[in-house]
Design a protein around this nucleic acid. Sequence first.
RNA 1: UGGGGUGUGGCCAAGUGGUAAGGCACUAGAUUUUGAUUCUAGCAUGCGCAGGUUCGAAUCCUGCCACCCCAGCCA
Length: 557
Amino acid sequence: MNNDTPTAGNFIRNMIAQDVASNKHDGRVYTRFPPEPNGYLHIGHAKSICLNFGLAQQYNGNCNLRFDDTNPEKESEEYMRSIQEDVSWLGFNWTELHYASDYFEALYQFALELIDKKLAYVDSLSADQMREYRGTLTEAGKSSPHRDRPVAENRDLFKRMKNGEFADGEHALRARIDMSSPNLNMRDPVLYRIRHVEHYRTGNKWCIYPMYDYTHCLSDALEHITHSLCTLEFEDHRPLYDWVLDNVSAPSRPEQTEFSRLNLQYTVLSKRKLIQLVEQGHVSGWDDPRMPTISGIRRRGYTPAAVRDFCERIGVTKKNSTVDMSLLENSLREDLNPIARRAMAVLKPLKLVITNYPKDKSEKLTARNHPKDESFGTRELRLTRELYVDHDDFMEDPPRKFFRLGPGREVRLRYGYCITCNEVIKDDAGNVIELHCTYDPETGGGQTPDGRKVKGIIHWVSADDAVDAEIRLYDRLFNVENPLQGDDYIEHLNPESLTVISNAKLEPSLAEANTETPYQFERVGFFTPDSVDHTSDAPVFNRTVTLRDSWAKQKNR
RNA sequence: UGGGGUGUGGCCAAGUGGUAAGGCACUAGAUUUUGAUUCUAGCAUGCGCAGGUUCGAAUCCUGCCACCCCAGCCA
């Protein structure tokens, strides 16, 4: 892993620095990233991944990838595979790969220990009853009639739960803590529930499954994790995390610290909602380039370095915040700009004829593949009488500051001559379908013989050798900053989040583009060949991100 | 009205008693065969509010206010 982004302090880094300095946990730093394999990872997870793996790297420690697979009803092999792929793509290597399901036997033994210490009991209340007994935010709960079952009975019942003698929901193992605690998590939380469901890894070996609060802390302890980082909503669970570790003969003593999860403008970052977008067909899948999933942004053309940089820049705090989309895009552009090869592509083709350019003539023009990095080399472009330019680079009645084509206006063809628009050809409906221009042969090589200023430069492709391509223009998935505000976030889906251009014209070199290789289409944006649909015979490019456009800004004022 | 958290510019975010870092965004200008990039300058008399302690407070104390999370046999 590179150190491409300078690291700034944050409260967790500071805490770990202190822990290392004071030799807490023997000076070790061991973190873990513990996803539940019940969905694809998104950019919010990237924050946690970068934090956990990054901290381990910084302090020469370790970081495990652990699947928190204690709820077989929602988990699957597919999710598990995608998660590993995404973490790797981000550039991180886990020290050890674990599954909470590997600890089921150990967890069971710890549960027996709690029972023996009279700190856990089998309850036979129904889920509804249990809710009633729990009390409310302002009223204490009351004890279950089974709270004082003898140890032997608890042991027997628990074993029989494990042996499959009871139906789902008939019994549950509960911690015996405090039914009047102001923290609801401490009102005798359920430790085990009965679920006769096949687990994707343990099959039908178990029909009792441990709950998150019980599993997580012990898994951390079993792996000798030192710093267990999680999101804010688990803050109330920390007393329980500690309670379990304090009351069982755990092999080590990890510590939980919470930070705020990432929120991003114009999108949603919750697995539940993302799964809904996929299942209801609002997007083409988890890897739809509009999705904030790791696989989605990867397909869109985001780079791991850009995501890492973004995660470093947003910082880590305990404050709920919503990050500006522009911050993510800035990290992306900053990474792409120096590495993207330049090329010309016309998204909305408008035929342009250079009337004083001979029909059978053509010239080879040398173009740089990168304006600042000569190692990218050069390529040759063929200039011919008939070209395609972008419709957006022409206005019939342009304002003063429109430095592009218009009747009588002169612009420079990128890497070529200056041309002046003399005639605008329209179809019967009045649409502009062709421009007739003349070129000034004295203006090659960026010169103008009389020193006149030609401010506008436009991109073009030769009509003779242009390659047809499909271009997918992506925009924000939702058209409001916070889609969750209001009754139904689905209503805020942006109907224009995807615009498919089927007749774009590319310079020939682009047909050979490789998947996941970023390009900059000059003056337009960064584009990446689609990893699924692109072929050299039928190129398909995804717009990764636009270029900054100060003209568009000015125009809108 | 119980408990747990959080409040620093439009958005993030440093700062931990010595007189408000940085990034993004924005604004102005320079360079430019991408209206891109790059560069330069500007951008909080004030850190949720009100008091108090102190020579000195975003940092300490007191009281308020706002927002977020918690009543799954989900994680």
